[in-house]
């Protein structure tokens, strides 16, 4: 039984890792096509993508949209969770439902809705429009994570601080935020990941300044190339490094 289990484990891990291995391996291809036989290793495609103006511009745009939209989503989500966790408001179930609702709607529909609204108002597609869309998809996530992390324990500490004369701002900055640090960081980095990787909203709501996934998409149109492997592998590497740093700092500490 145990042996059978391990065989299954190996087989399914092979399936899960196959595209990643192919992606990374053929980013070191020397020839023009990322298909066997492998004739590398060569770093020329990495040099090419790092010198590609459009690609690096898109990378900066993506970073900008991800940071701004995640910060706004985190702030709005934090305030909402703080408000709803504190007292029982009339209609709090409806409010919670409304805040969570965008999570169950396809990104394509959110994008199309925003496109109809912006067209109607005469707003041009831009990185800002994309950022607005990314706040819409990340706000429910931030709210849900932070709302789940708020407990009586923290409510009591806040009440104590207030009784001792702390202002509302001091309570939030000196008591609530430090107590919720792991949840805040988790929500923030998840939001950054989702925004950074999001395609359809960015595709429909940007025109001249595009984000990285949109730029990669247009690279695909010109056919298979090890350059696409190289930029894909670089993005993967950066994500893994961030993940390891988070795992070793934030989450290790929060467990102990």
């Amino acid at each position: 039984m145990r042996a059978l289990g391990y065989i299954y484990l190996v087989a399914i891990f092979a399936f899960i890792f196959l595209p990643v291995i192919v992606l990374v391996l053929f980013s070191f291809q020397a020839g023009r096509l990322p298909v066997p036989p492998f004739d590398g290793p060569s770093l020329k495609w990495y040099a090419e993508v790092l010198n590609d103006r459009g690609l690096m511009e898109a990378l900066r745009n993506s970073l900008f949209v991800a940071l701004v939209s995640s910060s706004i989503a985190l702030m709005l989500g934090f305030l909402a969770a703080q408000g709803l966790a504190r007292v029982r408001l009339p209609g709090s179930v409806v409010m919670r439902g409304l805040l969570i609702a965008p999570m169950t709607v396809s990104y394509l529909i959110i994008a199309l809705g925003l496109l109809s609204l912006f067209n109607g108002l005469g707003f041009r597609p831009s990185l800002w429009a994309t950022g607005i869309g990314h706040v819409v998809i990340n706000l429910p996530l931030c709210f849900a994570i932070l709302f789940a992390a708020m407990g009586d324990h923290q409510k009591n500490a806040e009440r104590a601080a207030r009784d001792l004369g702390a202002s509302e701002l001091q309570v939030v900055a000196l008591v609530t935020a430090p107590m919720l640090k792991p949840a805040l960081l988790a929500a923030f980095f998840l939001s950054i990941t989702f925004s950074w990787d999001e395609f359809i909203i960015a595709f429909l709501l940007t025109r001249f300044d595009v984000t990285l996934p949109v730029e990669i998409w247009s690279m695909l149109r010109s056919g298979l190339s090890p350059a696409t492997n190289a930029i894909g592998s670089l993005v993967f590497l950066v994500s893994i490094v961030i993940l390891i740093i988070l795992e070793l700092t934030v989450f290790r500490k929060s467990k102990s």
């Binding site: 709005l76 989500g77 305030l79 909402a80 703080q82 408000g83 709803l84 504190r86 007292v87 408001l89 409010m95 409304l98 805040l99 609702a101 965008p102 709607v105 529909i109 959110i110 199309l112 809705g113 925003l114 109809s116 609204l117 109607g120 607005i132 869309g133 706040v135 819409v136 706000l139 709210f143 509302e168």
Partner: peptide
């Protein structure tokens, strides 16, 4: 207390209303 709590929730609600519900209605 309730008024403060509502003031905390309001920005997120307005955002969801303006950029999720209204666009959906427009669509």
């Amino acid at each position: 207390e309730r008024r403060t709590a509502f003031a905390f929730v309001a920005p997120a609600l307005l955002w969801t209303l303006a950029f999720f519900l209204v666009p959906f209605g427009a669509m």
